[in-house]
């Protein structure tokens, strides 16, 4: 059974010019033990999806979905409290900016201990609790590769390097022994060595613990080395989704193709000094969204039909939404 199943998630934001569809009929399915990548340019609504899943929602947002279930339980229908309970025990989030996602005036150790559930600790009388909690916390830290746990647990977020902060975030995410970890661009702005460490850590956790990971990023290189499945997002619309290998071999949506081509490391046939390909224009702002397929104005294959939103089509596990997918030509 799939862990998280989202169908036609639409999220509207209240703005001065009326309600804007920041997410337009998003589909996302995450199965157990899977690393699922969510890819898109900045501004394509990746972080908003994450917020919608964990329920960190502003009052000015309106969420509708045909289906949004967590292991068969409807997330949208349940009460805030029930939802929080699920999130506390089953879903964890690793945020983009570790430093600003940690409380600046509470020591890291206290923040880590705060997320450890009492049920995850060994049974003991209440005077043993604090000790058990501390032991559990330091074990967690060892697991994510922090050796001087004593020092770091006493520190405040601004006193320690960025990658250690991110490791702390991962430790906090793992503390509740969740089923799903949502990593929202966890390596943003990091040095390459720290980055590969964190990525390795995540994929190890995935293998050892059968933990599902929703990996949100625009770092294609990192994604292709880790993820089994990929969902490509453009401007709040799911463009294409499917197995990583399949998508890389034969992308059906023009945007996916452009995205993959924009990363030189995927192109074996690229001659030296040849110009890199990219789509013209930039991602539209949420105030000026095009109607129909939102890629329309930038799409090299756009025709008149593209002012209507394309239906989701499916070939086995591979879904895409485009009126004129790439495989049509190749027939």
């Amino acid at each position: 059974m799939s862990l998280l199943d989202i169908k036609n998630l639409t999220l509207e934001i209240d703005s001065q010019s009326g309600w804007i569809k920041a997410l337009d009929k998003i589909n996302l399915v995450i199965n157990e033990g899977q690393i699922h990548a969510l890819v898109g340019e900045s501004g394509s609504g990746k972080s908003i999806i994450v917020k919608a899943i964990v329920g960190a929602i502003s009052d000015r947002w309106r969420i509708t979905a045909d289906r949004m279930t967590w292991r068969g339980q409807d997330l949208l229908k349940m009460s805030v409290r029930e939802r929080r309970k699920i999130i506390r025990s089953d879903i964890s989030v690793i945020f983009q900016n570790p430093k600003s996602s940690l409380d600046p005036i509470v020591t890291l150790g206290d923040q880590l201990k705060e997320v450890i559930l009492a049920t995850r600790l060994e049974k003991g009388m209440f005077w043993n609790r604090a000790k058990a909690r501390k032991k559990y916390a330091s074990e967690l830290l060892h697991r994510v590769g922090i050796k001087d746990h004593e020092v770091y647990m006493r520190s405040l977020p601004h006193q320690i390097p960025n990658d250690v902060c991110q490791k702390f975030m991962i430790a906090m995410a793992l503390a509740s022994q969740p089923k799903l970890v949502i990593a929202d661009d966890p390596t943003r702005g990091m040095e390459i060595t720290d980055k590969s460490q964190i990525l390795k850590l995540l994929s190890r956790v995935n293998k050892v613990r059968k933990l599902s990971i929703l990996f949100v990023s625009h770092d294609l290189l990192a994604i292709s080395s880790m993820a089994d499945h990929m969902t490509v997002l453009y401007c709040g619309q799911t463009v294409e989704s499917g197995r990583m290998s399949q998508l890389r071999k034969r992308a059906l949506h023009p945007y996916t193709k452009a995205l993959l081509e924009s990363a030189p490391s995927f192109r074996t046939d690229l001659a030296p000094k040849s110009p890199l390909s990219s789509l013209g224009g930039t991602i539209p702002s949420f105030q000026h969204l095009p109607i129909g397929c939102r890629l329309g104005p930038r799409c090299p294959r756009a025709r008149r039909e593209c002012v209507k939103v394309p239906e989701v089509r499916r070939i086995h596990e591979h879904t895409y939404s485009c009126h004129f997918p790439l495989h049509r030509d190749q027939k």
Binding site: G55, I87, F95, N97, S100, L102, E114, V115
Partner: peptide, 13 residues
């Protein structure tokens, strides 16, 4: 701020 949002996302009440 982000850390408050993050704290909510960690499932704290």
């Amino acid at each position: 701020s982000e850390y408050i949002q993050a704290a909510y996302a960690r499932g704290l009440s």
